[in-house]
Design a protein around this nucleic acid. Structure first.
Lengths: 231, 231
DNA sequence: CGGGAGCTTGAGGAGGATCAAATCATGTGG
DNA sequence: CCACATGATTTGATCCTCCTCAAGCTCCCG
């Protein structure tokens, strides 16, 4: 199971959050010292090892999570038993936003790379609600945008285009390298089979559009990728 | 262009909204008489004929819209010039929610069936913000859910399965009939070509899984559709 | 060293794309 | 009222992409 380590006193949450390295990215970006003093519940740090679930669909949704490090997939299951990844969450993204309006989680949230996240009990959100309004709206907006990006870029066009677009989406343009994940997950994200995903990644390697410097860590030829994405 | 007809005095908005037939579905569901009295901007009724745009991507986002009748598509454009429908909005859904957090619209919103909607200026939302908090969150939540539904049901599996799932999503199970739209749009929604969309709809008609009682108006054999959706 | 999981590759076939043409529906002007 | 132009839908023929089933391969760990 995921490792929950939290400070024992409420005010520790304050100290931790205030000095958070990604303060401007998170839900609490707008809060003041006075706001933090109203938090009477622990904000836990959770670490989810690769492959472990942060939560499962149908579980009671007691908390919202802010991703500080790593990569998380949100997946859902189909009538025919297949599964589909509907979103990828990375630094600054929020998982389980539905906790603020629904009783249960709607996805399986599973770490593709070891994830460090903050667990924020739903009551904290409820209590700070007016102060968080703007940031909550921003987070929802991001969730919608990510999902539409996924449809537009990763579920449209040929399998080759989708793989190229995935390499472009996985890291900002100025990033040196870019970390990929298992071919089965690539398939579930792009709506293609594991074999096709493998074939195409291998092909891009052979054509040195990307090169694997270490297992699942790639350098990219951006202009070549962009050409494929738009062809 | 879309037809904007609005009451001239602010309080008319109140009267209209208060007696709205879908009051419990809309953004203003929680508001009281006192809240309405704070609205000093007109809530217009807009009618968008089939094929016309409610807004275009990049346009300054000055308003949010509640759909009262009809069907709206949200579409986005790809690097290669193709387009993809990322969401369908119908009664009670909200279009242009991004107006509350961004400067411009992110989609083209186009009527698939003649749409009647309420145009709510962004300042109204801003002003009533705390009172609308819960409903805004609900609307965002719906937007995310719709988008994930689209990915999971309409962009996964064989073209045949997708068409069947579309017929199931287009109207509630107890609806007598179900209205479809042009094959080109069906294609853009399911991520397949116009020809394939046409072929499969025609095939379902021949197999009397659906029947076209009048142009683009269908009755459905639900169990047959469900069987195809899950096969 | 052997076993397992994930990745790669191969051969074959099915499903969907593409290009092209025929049919149907709609509206317009003669 | 009919002839015709226009656009959407349907259908056909062909090709190519991607899926399926299957077998090797690599790497890691016991």
């Amino acid at each position: 199971m995921a490792n929950h380590e939290h400070g024992d006193a409420p005010w520790q949450a304050f100290k931790q959050c205030e000095s958070c390295g990604i303060r401007d990215l998170v839900l609490f970006a707008d809060l003041t010292e006075a706001d933090f003093s109203q938090i009477h519940l622990p904000i836990d740090n959770v670490v989810i090892p690769q492959g472990e679930a942060l939560y499962q669909p149908g579980q009671p949704a007691h908390a919202v999570f802010t991703v500080r490090e790593g990569l998380l997939k949100l997946e859902q299951y189909l009538p025919d038993g297949n599964r589909r990844i509907v979103s990828l969450l990375s630094q600054g993204d929020t998982a389980g936003l539905e906790a603020t309006v629904a009783d249960t989680y709607e996805h399986a949230a599973i770490a593709l790379q070891t994830v460090k996240a903050c667990r924020i009990p739903r009551e904290v959100i409820t209590r700070l609600s007016p102060r968080l309004h703007r940031q909550l709206m921003n987070k929802w907006h991001n969730a919608v945008r990510k999902s539409h990006d996924c449809l537009r870029e990763l579920s449209t066009g040929s399998a080759r285009q989708r793989v190229a677009r995935l390499f472009l989406l996985l890291a900002p343009d100025d990033a040196e390298v870019c970390r990929l994940f298992g071919r089965e997950d690539v398939g579930a994200l792009l709506g293609i089979t594991t074999e096709t995903a493998s074939r195409l990644v291998a092909e891009l390697k052979r054509q040195s559009v990307v090169s694997e410097v270490s297992p699942n860590l790639f350098t990219r030829n951006l202009s070549a990728l962009e050409a494929i994405a738009a062809e």
